[in-house]
Design a protein around this nucleic acid. Sequence first.
DNA 1: CGATTGACGTACG
DNA 2: TCGTACGCCAATC
Length: 110
Amino acid sequence: MQENFFNQVYEVVKLIPKGKVTSYGAIAKYLSSSRASRMVGWAMNNCHSRSEYIPAHRVVNRNGLLIGKAFFGKENEMSLLLNDEGVEVKDDQIINFKNHFWDPSIELTL
DNA sequence: CGATTGACGTACG
DNA sequence: TCGTACGCCAATC
């Protein structure tokens, strides 16, 4: 399979610390282009094809909205996981998103 | 093999 | 400030 973009996405997502969240655009920008955010979402769509578990619930859109909840299975599961990790989520919307935001381009110190 | 879609985001009007 | 168009790459139809 793709050992460059997709694998990079999965690796970054798995590196997200507990209680932290990031956005598709942040990962895309860290990997290549800011406009490659669709590829990140596509990677998440195929995340089940990966051998490792991908904490996709820690990856949200630019608005901090749990857009992927519909693909996660149980809608509440995604919110509950984030809440359990210390991330405040209200109505599928992350509260203090900026406070919980985890930027790979900064945390990974590219 | 060619066209369209897809967990988004940025740029331009 | 709000709305529409485009870009990225892979997978599916």
